[in-house]
Computed example of a mutant assay.
Amino acid sequence: MRELTCHCDQTFSVDLPETVNLDERPEVIDAIDDGSFLSCVCPSCNAQLNTDLRTEVLWPSKHARLLLIPEADRMLFFSRKLEIPEGTQVVIGYPELADRIAALKAGLDVTAVETLKYHLAEQAEQTNPGKSVRIYFESANDSEALEFHIHGLRNDEVAVTKIPMKLYHSIRQSISNNPDDDVSKAVCNGSYISWQNILIEDNGND
């Protein structure tokens, strides 16, 4: 059991897992995708609560060991104030968990996907300077394209972009051929594989 406090200030215990194995519970894959994983209803006000509680997500068949960290703990993580088990990859906030599970489900290389996001963010900055964007992998619709959703370009709107699969394969091959490439190295920062590592690095150099 885990303890939650609702927006109505009601504190209650709820049966949400601290660890889940997706090979043993494959139904959780769809629950993560549709947003119902780690959700519950407040017994006082009946509000639907969608949480991002710290949760270990194992997917042995995909060689994945993930640790979901609440978005509220992002700066604690980057300040190295959180203990991360060895061999674990961190995702911060529920959207990143859904993104990572979608990429693994599609059989994609995570570093290549995050590098693609970086290039999308670069394009967004050129066309919409000053905008803070969030980019999530949505799906591999077919063998021809990968779909990404970009938040933050316009208020209350989500931009949908499709990237040719051949570009993904080109980036993956480039990473394999040039493991010391600055972008791909920056994307992989210890336990956190994300294009947002480049933002942190840039801010640190300001």
Rank of each mutant, 00 (worst) to 15 (best):
V187S: 00
F12R: 06
E138T: 07
I29S: 04
A64L: 07
A145N: 13
T11V: 13
P85T: 05
A98P: 00
G152R: 06
I200N: 01
L67K: 07
S176C: 07
D34W: 06
K117Q: 12
E24F: 01
D52A: 10
L68V: 03
R74G: 00
D99H: 15
A98I: 01
D15Q: 12
M1D: 04
Q173D: 13
L58N: 08
E83V: 04
L97W: 03
E201R: 11
P26M: 08
L38M: 13
Q48I: 13
L4F: 15
L153C: 04
M75Y: 12
R25I: 02
Q89L: 06
H169F: 06
A103C: 05
I171H: 05
L97R: 03
S132H: 11
V14D: 10
L108Y: 10
I171D: 08
A102D: 02
V160Y: 01
E18L: 13
H169M: 10
N203Q: 12
C8N: 09
E56K: 14
E147Q: 15
D202Q: 13
S61I: 07
N141K: 14
T111S: 09
G204C: 02
V110S: 02
H63M: 11
P129C: 10
Q10E: 14
G152V: 08
K162E: 15
S44A: 15
L22Q: 04
M75D: 14
F37N: 03
N189E: 10
R134I: 01
V41S: 12
D9N: 11
D23Q: 06
F37I: 02
R2F: 01
T161E: 12
L199S: 07
M165C: 02
F12V: 05
L66W: 01
A98S: 14
N141M: 06
F137H: 05
P70M: 11
L120Y: 04
S170T: 11
E138G: 07
L97F: 05
Y192Q: 02
S13E: 15
R134W: 09
I193G: 00
C8Y: 05
I101Y: 05
L82A: 02
V183R: 02
L97T: 02
V90S: 03
T88S: 10
L82R: 07
L49N: 08
S194Y: 06
V110M: 14
D109K: 01
S61H: 07
